[in-house]
Structure formats: structure tokens, C-alpha cells
């Protein structure tokens, strides 16, 4: 479903295949979209660094030919901060997930937004801890079943994109693994924008999330994303007009693009 749109295959370590991702996983789509965007920027494996924390999403740098750091749980952004501030000429991209970014790494996340440090963070939000077998995360929707919310999640989730906007990031957008072209464009916009960029990519995890929440097939999850994603313009119009926002629906599109003072930008 990703299609072969560009030169992303040049960026993959073929000697690391096969990868660890489950059949139907959405992470591969996001990795391809990211590499496609990086390739379109004209960046090279010599001047691009991928950095990640722990979790399924964070395994991505291991499949990419550039210099890369697969770090500790939640800490990818401060590692990336050290790389970027020491070598502002390198392009630094962080792969993370909802648990890595919003739970254990939440404080680093908001402070990186505040500093507006010149990193692009691609967060694969699958609503769950996939690698450890489907535990609830700070992004698990209310009522959803996970191994640690067996009676339905009773905590409200974080809205990662809005959090990044409030904390000061220069570029924020959200798409899903259904919206391949839009996601690729959004990542490219994040790479182009000086300062901190967050691209939240909602992805399907049929194994850890779908199975327990009546979305067993990958296709069913992708359809769920398609049906519940509301374009930002429409979402805002509905809000302004006081129309009821359908339960389970979420906005996709660009949350913010601005030019606040940023750190680590090559002068």
C-alpha cells in the first residue's frame, strides 16, 4: 500500500532484512514516507543522522544506512540535542513512538519544543506499547482494551500534536499511515522548517491494539483511520460552528507552521 514513490530503497540496509515488524504493521509505511521525504530534500547518508529511543518505531534507524543512535527508552531527543548542537551541519531526524515520546520521554519532548531545537521528530502513534505486547500508553483512547487496561482505558489520552504546538514547536502536523502522500509532504515540510518539527503519524498495530479492539485485520484499522480522520479545515469549521464532533474522530493536517526563534540552526 505504500507504493514505490522515490529513492527510499537506497537508504535501507539490505543486510539487515528481514525486519522485526509484524505483518500489517504501519511503521514500515512511515519509515518509507520519511526516507522518501529525506531523499527529496537532497540530503545524503553522510550528512543525515537518525536517532531513536526504545520500542517498535525506534528500531527504524537500524534499517537505515546513515549514522544512527538507537538509545535508551524515552531519551532519543536529548541524545539528538547533543548531536545537533555539536554538529549543526548534520540533519537530525528522530523516530519515536507514543510511549517513548509521551510517557517516559514526555519531559524531554516538551523541553525540546520549548527550545525549538532544529530536529524533526516523526512519532509513530499506535496507541499502545507494541514491543512489550500491547500495554496501555498515554495515547490509548478512553475505553480501549489493552493488557494493562483490561476493562477499558479509564485515563484520557494526550493529544501529541496540540501538546507540541502549546510547547512552542515551529512545525506540527498529524496524518496517518492511510494518508501516504500527505504524510510524506508533511514530513518534508517538517524537514524544511528550521526549529522543532513534530509529525505525528497514527499507525495501525493489528497485533498489539487491533486484536483487542475489534480491528483484527490491518485493513480494518486502516479503514478506521480513513473514516475517523477529519481534515483540519473541516474540523476547525465544525468547531467554529459548534457542530458535534463525532466520537472517535480526530483532526489531521497541519497544526502549526511558524518561525519562532530556534536553536541549533546552522547560520
Amino acid at each position: 500500500m505504500t507504493g514505490n514513490q522515490g529513492g527510499f530503497q537506497d537508504w535501507l540496509r539490505e543486510d539487515r532484512l528481514p525486519h522485526i515488524y509484524c505483518t500489517g504493521c504501519g511503521n514500515g509505511t512511515v519509515i518509507n514516507c520519511t526516507l522518501d521525504a529525506v531523499d527529496k530534500m537532497g540530503w545524503t547518508p553522510e550528512n543525515t543522522v537518525f536517532i531513536s529511543g526504545i520500542g517498535c518505531s525506534s528500531r527504524a534507524p537500524g534499517y537505515i544506512v546513515t549514522d544512527s543512535l538507537h538509545t535508551t527508552h524515552g531519551r532519543a531527543i536529548p541524545f539528538a540535542t547533543g548531536v545537533k548542537l555539536s554538529r549543526p551541519d548534520l540533519h537530525v531526524v528522530v523516530f519515536t513512538g507514543d510511549g517513548d515520546l509521551a510517557a517516559i520521554g514526555g519531559n524531554h519532548f516538551i523541553h525540546a519544543c520549548r527550545r525549538n531545537i532544529d530536529l524533526t521528530v516523526v512519532c509513530m502513534n499506535n496507541f499502545i506499547y507494541g514491543m512489550t505486547g500491547g500495554q496501555g500508553s498515554p495515547c490509548t483512547p478512553m475505553g480501549a482494551i489493552s493488557t494493562t487496561t483490561p476493562y477499558g482505558c479509564n485515563e484520557p489520552p494526550f493529544d501529541l500534536a496540540s501538546l507540541a504546538v502549546a510547547a512552542g514547536a515551529n512545525y506540527v502536523s498529524r496524518w496517518t499511515s492511510y494518508h501516504v502522500r500527505e504524510l510524506t509532504k508533511a514530513i518534508r515540510a517538517g524537514l524544511e522548517t528550521p526549529g522543532f518539527s513534530l509529525i505525528e503519524a497514527v499507525v495501525q498495530c493489528p497485533t498489539g491494539y487491533g486484536r483487542k479492539n475489534r480491528l483484527r485485520e490491518a485493513g480494518a484499522m486502516v479503514a478506521w483511520m480513513r473514516d475517523n480522520a477529519v481534515l483540519m479545515q473541516k474540523w476547525r469549521r465544525m468547531q467554529e460552528e459548534g457542530l458535534p464532533l463525532p466520537s472517535g474522530a480526530f483532526p489531521v493536517g497541519e497544526f502549526v507552521r511558524r518561525n519562532l526563534p530556534a536553536m541549533g540552526v546552522l547560520e
Partner: peptide, 10 residues
């Protein structure tokens, strides 16, 4: 945690 992480990155 972030301090030592940034040092390792650098």
C-alpha cells in the same frame, strides 16, 4: 537524564 544523553550524543 537529558544531560548525560546530550553528552553522549555530542
Amino acid at each position: 537524564l537529558a544531560s548525560i544523553a546530550s553528552v553522549i550524543g555530542a
